[in-house]
Design a protein around this nucleic acid. Structure first.
Lengths: 221, 221
DNA sequence: ATGTCAAATAATATCGATATTTTTGGAGAA
DNA sequence: TTCTCCAAAAATATCGATATTATTTGACAT
């Protein structure tokens, strides 16, 4: 009956609710990298039992957002420039594969979804940073989503989240908007709608490389 | 005190023990694809509590060996030719990246490890299929292990396991030895020791494609 | 003053039990 | 006979409590 006391009845299971909330807190830096994650402390924070918390932490371990240390519990995954660069490298590789496959399977329904997601992202740009982040991810995943390669999509989504975490940590999650990424998104979209795989992937990778360089420079200071 | 009653005191925690055992059972097909995994049933099989079983299943979910269905518990991940072909595709892509990075970082210590692993694998070929599987994985991971890209290695290991599952399911895990894979391994090794990235990756990918075609044909029948 | 060891403290891992949810099976009506 | 609905059974998700393991604190010896 505890689960019913929540302000919103959105979450079906306590485990999934704890998973979503903890994930959010780690991604945004509310739980900083390397921080010890004590069951009791989280139990209070999420007002739920120990079992859902444990299970949520287990799941986050496999998302590489939480590390399990021997018999000494859990901690938020540490960050490093090295790790960031690997994420960038893998994203460029995997997303190119996925985007090419998406374009190879291109159809009208997919193009409609793309245009819609892009429109929503532009509209969310005026709202808070959080709304924009969601729409941004939706747009990027829509680009890859026509590949019909579920494993690959899963990896891309995972790496996307790992990457977004560095954005939040480096700049509170909003400063990168100052660069002109709207034009970059438009280029990727237009090329995808033209079924021009070479051009689209080139723009996509440049998009990542640029944000990558920007964040790398932020991490040095 | 229950944990101490096990015949072997190898496992540190009950959770990890259950994880390893369940993983093994799913990989080898002892728990067939799609099978419902009831907590009570597994609790008896592993003689441990419900909590470790639940946590182990959660971890296996993220390895994509187990699926969680809504509030209806867990089941062994289903298999399909489509899924198999995606695994093959991703392995070719990711392992090429990893092998090239490994060769770029080549040093004497790595070459020694490679030679050793290869030797152990050849020796294990005379023993049971299970020993050979372990040595085979160790050799392949050693090839990639010098890349210093831990995320990439993790994905490769995960895909390796997903792939080996299809081998077990298709042929009981030993029949593929009948093909002349020893020569293929030798070619990959030699090229790697020569620091010839192009040749080594070509042989590696051909190695996978051939086993892939063999398994694909098995799956049709 | 410092290093080491032991007791106290705190945190984790695990268990047994309960409440909720899903599935099954059978009775009654069309 | 077949469909629907309700009740019984099973299984899951979750909680509270306990035993095990790590960490800290303080005392004692060097």
């Amino acid at each position: 009956m505890d689960a019913m006391l929540d302000t919103e009845g959105k979450e079906t299971s306590a485990t999934h609710g704890a998973y979503r909330r903890l994930r959010e807190m780690i991604l945004t830096g509310e739980l900083p990298p390397g921080q010890k994650l004590k069951i009791e402390q989280l139990r209070g924070l999420l007002n739920t039992g120990a079992s859902p918390v444990r299970e949520a932490l287990s799941l986050l371990t496999s998302d590489m957002l939480v590390e399990r240390i021997d018999q000494r519990g859990f901690r938020a995954a540490p960050v490093s420039k090295c790790n960031f660069e690997e994420i960038l490298l893998l994203r460029c590789n995997l997303e190119e594969t996925a985007l090419r496959a998406s374009i190879a399977n291109a159809d009208a329904a997919w193009e409609d979804r793309l245009v819609l997601r892009h429109h929503h992202m532009k509209k969310a740009g005026q709202n808070g940073a959080h709304d924009f982040e969601d729409a941004h991810k939706a747009f990027h995943m829509a680009l890859l989503g026509n590949s019909k390669l579920p494993l690959l999509l899963r990896y891309c989504a995972q790496l996307y989240d790992l990457n977004i975490r560095y954005r939040y940590l480096a700049a509170g999650g909003s400063s990168y908007k100052k660069r002109n990424i709207a034009a970059e998104h438009q280029q990727i979209l237009d090329a995808a709608l033209d079924h021009d795989a070479d051009s689209s992937t080139r723009h996509l990778i440049n998009h990542y490389r640029r944000t990558g360089e920007y964040l790398s420079s932020q991490m040095d200071s």
